[in-house]
């Protein structure tokens, strides 16, 4: 303990930061249990009906609660399944490239779409998937012939997820490239001498070398399972495909246009957070058991 005294001193600013900026305002979470009125402030607003759970009940009773929850989960899990590995694969492929210039060029160019604003990206997506769009044309060579892709409920999730990969895979791969660069090169030398081919090197050196990064980022990703933001959804969807594209955030957004209800949004947000946190706790435990890697 004495030896670590310096460590506690070192981390003090961080603790203070969280106390002042995260915990001090945290009382505001009760807004979900109140009927918030801006003029009265959070503490002055009246408590919501049903022991404060009025907004949650109203949310769960909504005709579309089940559908929006399902859509949110489908999109999240699909993203996890496809968008999570994609940057890892890109990083691994880039790692195999010997030509430094090519490697740098690919890496730099591939992250550019990350910075294009969502509005522009979505209008490009709609352009490419229109019935005269280039992606539609490409797919027609494989027998697809049903016009604008975004008018079909079944195609929304693929378009959403794949376009997300297109936009972010480059940027997301940066952290893995950094992790790869931290692998001791002498291990590769030794392996080559031992006759290991590329593939074996990948399995026994590369992947283990970045495994901690992968696992930690995965746990964090699972902690975002309820977080499907409304912006991209709204830019891409239309009422004809609500059945697969209307998620919790977009539904709440439209409700907010009718009547701005801070308490209701807060209740939905709290619901999402509880589920997110629960997932993190569960997966953290699981990961600790299986791989020994965990957040805490």
């Amino acid at each position: 303990m004495k030896r670590n005294y310096g460590a506690y001193l070192l981390v003090l600013p961080v603790i203070l930061y969280y106390i002042i900026f995260a915990y001090k305002p945290m009382y505001g979470a009760i807004i979900a249990f109140k009927d918030f009125s801006p003029g009265r402030g959070i503490l002055g607003s009246h408590w919501a009906g049903n022991y404060g759970f009025e907004h949650f009940i109203s949310f769960f009773n909504s005709y579309f609660f089940g559908r929006t929850l399902k859509n949110t989960l489908v999109i999240s899990l699909s993203s996890l399944l496809f968008s999570f590995p994609a940057p890892i694969i890109l990083a691994l492929l880039l790692n195999e490239v010997k030509n430094k210039f090519f490697k740098r060029a690919v890496q730099t160019i591939s992250y550019m779409p990350h910075f294009i604003s969502l509005v522009v990206v979505c209008s490009l997506i709609k352009l490419f998937t229109a019935d005269t769009g280039i992606v539609t044309y490409f797919l027609s060579m494989f027998g697809y012939d049903s016009g604008a892709m975004l008018s079909h409920p079944d195609l929304f999730v693929p378009v959403y997820v794949l376009s997300g990969i297109w936009q972010h895979v480059g940027w997301d791969s940066i952290i893995y490239l950094a992790a790869l660069s931290g692998i001791d090169q002498s291990l590769y030398e030794a392996a080559k001498i031992d006759g290991a081919n590329r593939w074996k090197q990948m399995i026994y050196i590369t992947l283990p070398g970045i495994s901690i990064t992968i696992v930690i980022l995965f746990i964090l990703a699972i902690g975002g399972i309820m977080n499907v933001g409304y912006e991209k959804i709204i830019l891409l969807y239309n009422p004809g495909i609500y059945e697969t594209s209307d998620v919790i955030s977009s539904f709440v957004y439209r409700k907010g246009l009718l009547e701005s209800n801070w308490s209701f949004s807060a209740a939905v947000g709290l619901f999402n957070s509880v589920i997110n946190f629960f997932m993190v706790v569960v997966f953290n435990k699981l990961s600790k058991k299986i791989s020994g890697i965990s957040l805490w």
């Binding site: 969280y18 995260a22 915990y23 001090k24 305002p25 945290m26 009382y27 505001g28 979470a29 807004i31 402030g41 959070i42 902690g223 801070w262 807060a266 947000g269 709290l270 957070s273 997110n276 946190f277 993190v280 957040l295 805490w296």
Partner: peptide, 12 residues
């Protein structure tokens, strides 16, 4: 980590 998931919101 708790603070990543629970916050007071914009007003506080």
């Amino acid at each position: 980590i708790f603070t990543m998931y629970f916050s007071g919101g914009m007003i506080p």
